[in-house]
Amino acid sequence: MDKFVTHTGKAVAINLANIDTDQIIPKQFLKRIERSGYGEFLFYDWRFTPTGEIIADFVLNRSESADASILISGENFGCGSSREHAPWSLLDYGFRVVIAPSFADIFYNNSLKTGLLPVRLSPDDTLTLMERANSLPDHEICVDLDVSIVTDNQGFAAEFEINEFRKYCLVNGLDDIGLSLQYESAIDAYERSRQQNQPFLAFSS
């Protein structure tokens, strides 16, 4: 996983609540067995017509959104399925941060594990950033994970909450599996005690 320390970039806003994983990456693109290459399918049904033509007025298709790397959305972003293809597609498309008042649980976890930073801000702060992203051509947002602060070049500043341990993993680009395997002897011990004390828990067939 890539490290995440700070990120500065342009933002695009989609002011809708409950943007679900079927919108982020429709299921027909889940059949691939790779982890990469999902960016071209991001928000596919919103970006393209059924015949594959570009829908010019969808915000991601506007020329001023071309180099955006921060997505701002309404509440409960990423609800729906557990597909990690959702953060994969956002990352692959070029997003490093999603800002929303709230996120669905699995999406939030998946993002942290892929190096996409989900940032929860209050509804009012989210709206402020959305309005600025929409109206100011030179608007830029900076997310500093080390101190958990979001700022912009218009004087905005807000702290956001993130689990300290998760932050530590992201800032150092640590692999969860490697971390857990440090406790391999504890896993062994757990299994042994299970076998001794509750052997009936094992499958019989």
Partner: peptide, 20 residues
């Protein structure tokens, strides 16, 4: 509960999952 693919890999490798 449902998990993402990174967590699937985590469970395959360790039979555990870090959870809050």
């Amino acid at each position: 509960f449902g998990i993402g693919t990174s967590e699937v890999e985590h469970v395959l490798a360790t039979q555990t999952l870090p959870q809050t």
